[in-house]
Amino acid sequence: MIALHIHGLSRKYGEKWGLRPLDADIEAGDFLTLLGPNGAGKSTLLKLLSLQMKPSAGSISCDGEPLRDLGEKYRARIGVISHQPFLYDGLSALENLSFYASLYGISKPRARAIELLKRVDMNKRMHDPVRSYSRGMLQRTSIARALLNKPDFIFLDEPYTGLDRQATYMLTEILQEQVQRKATIVLVTHDLSLGYMLADKLMILSKGECKYFGDKAFTTDTDLERRYLELVRDEHA
């Protein structure tokens, strides 16, 4: 079943293409990894999918309805991990998550916040102000925040940045749990082997243009880097 239908979607920054017209269908429960060099359009696509940005042309529809019409209904179903933590640094992790949980209409926001902070091993520091956290701790808290509403769609922009080995393993485990509960996941990463390992589908972007979109079976784990460099070689020319 097609969950997200992307039709002629593009985004321009002035005269420069951030994303060239793109057509793609993402099925419910898909794990899509977006790969590409810096400035390829990965984050732009992620922002368009999460309504953080308006397209210059084209549309995205969810279960047959345009995202713009769905508005709040769609936002209630998504979780986003961005380059920014989306946390108030003067508040503790627990206060931050309880606040965001209340915005999602969760009936016991504090209990849900504690549950997720335990899941990301932040329960021991959950009363400390966020400004005292390390990069990795911020990222863990940010992951917990994104999962508050048990989202159907999870959009992650380089979520492994700043995570130590243990936290990397934990995030991978969390993502696999989300796959098991049939969440649709779109992951942006520069780690080719990790992206390949997690994905059902790959999209390779270069200079805002989609060079490949489809099943990851088009290449093998060991051959991925060579195929990837072939597809994006113009970028380095």
Partner: peptide
């Protein structure tokens, strides 16, 4: 500034609220 730091305004706009 509290809303801009850490991208909180973005997070508020991502929330399913009016």
């Amino acid at each position: 500034q509290a809303e801009i730091n850490g991208g909180n305004l973005e997070a508020l706009l991502l929330s399913p609220i009016s």
